[in-house]
Simulated scan of single mutants.
Amino acid sequence: MDTEHAGRRLRSDLSRALADSGSVGLGAFPMGVAFGVLVVHSGLDWWWASVFSGLIYAGSLEFLLLGLVLAGAPLGQVALTAFTVNFRHVFYALSFPLHRVRGRAARAYSTFALSDEAYAVTAGPAARSYPGRRVLWLQVFIHLYWAGGATAGALLGAAVPAGVEGLDFAVTALFAVLALDAFRARPAPAVPALALGCALAARLAVPGGQLFVAFLLFAAGLLGHYAVVRNRPRPRRRRGKEATRV
């Protein structure tokens, strides 16, 4: 009976995780296809797309890493680029529900598969009740969308003309859609305004390290905003007859 119950729960978590990841998969799979096509057009064997997407699994970093590998960049430059681009994941870990995932192996994979898309889906109010297994399977499906798309794009890359432009814009387009979805779920005009201000300030102050500095400024701004909102006095509830008025 317990085995049957556990099987039903597993099937339920799988189906719900698949539904949760469906909207993200519509963007992640074509983005992976674009990456796979770029890999083949760059002169590498098709299986490199599967290796990059399966083992590195870093989205925008993979597009940058492809250019660095082809240019023969030093290992130090590759490491610095990877650290700068993926530094945002440090802040993701502050609110990602990793504590719900049970088991060392499951937690290790969940940490590895903490992508922008997985964080965007689990950051919504509805995801606060997701069990750990549902969160884990959500990450597995998103990983499969990306790696499967990259492999498919690499295998079909020869059919895509080499002169096609704009494939590398797929990452930016997906991030823009995720940002719009997050804003619709939690309308807070101050947050995108703060992000824009931090990006402009970093661009003017440190053009060579814009991304890293912008994330630091944005994180500091969010912490300051949270401190102000937390310490703001709450309006007192009315008592007596005034509390019953409509």
Results as ranks from 00 to 15, higher is better:
N86P: 03
L138A: 03
L68I: 05
S129Q: 14
V85Q: 02
G124M: 03
F52A: 08
G54A: 14
R107Q: 15
V101P: 13
D116C: 11
G124N: 03
R133A: 03
Y92G: 06
Y92K: 07
P74N: 07
S129N: 14
F91Q: 01
F141N: 07
F96R: 04
Y92W: 05
V121G: 05
V135R: 10
F91P: 04
T81I: 00
T111W: 05
L80C: 06
F87A: 15
P131N: 03
A123E: 02
A93V: 01
L136Q: 09
W137C: 11
R100Y: 05
L64R: 10
H89Y: 10
F96D: 14
F91R: 12
I56S: 14
G132D: 06
V51Q: 06
T122M: 04
G54M: 04
Q77H: 12
V101H: 08
R100N: 13
L98E: 12
A108G: 15
A82C: 09
L68T: 10
P125A: 13
S115C: 14
S50G: 15
E117G: 12
L68M: 13
S115L: 05
V140I: 14
L114R: 13
P74W: 02
L64F: 08
A82S: 14
A120T: 11
L98K: 11
G124H: 12
V69D: 10
G103S: 10
L138E: 06
V69S: 07
E117A: 11
S60M: 04
L65P: 06
L55W: 09
L80E: 14
P74C: 01
V121T: 10
R104K: 11
G124K: 07
T122N: 13
R134A: 01
F112P: 15
P97E: 00
H99P: 06
T122C: 12
V90E: 03
R100F: 07
T81K: 05
L65T: 08
V90P: 07
A82D: 01
R100D: 11
A73L: 03
L138C: 02
Q77C: 01
G132S: 12
T111R: 14
S53F: 07
R133I: 00
R134F: 06
A49V: 03
A71K: 06
V101W: 02
E117S: 14
T84S: 15
L94T: 05
T81C: 11
R104M: 07
T122W: 01
F52D: 01
T122P: 04
V135T: 13
A93Y: 05
W48I: 05
V90D: 06
A73D: 02
D116P: 14
L138R: 08
S110F: 04
F91M: 10
V90H: 09
F63E: 08
N86T: 03
R134T: 03
V90C: 13
L98N: 13
S53C: 09
F91Y: 14
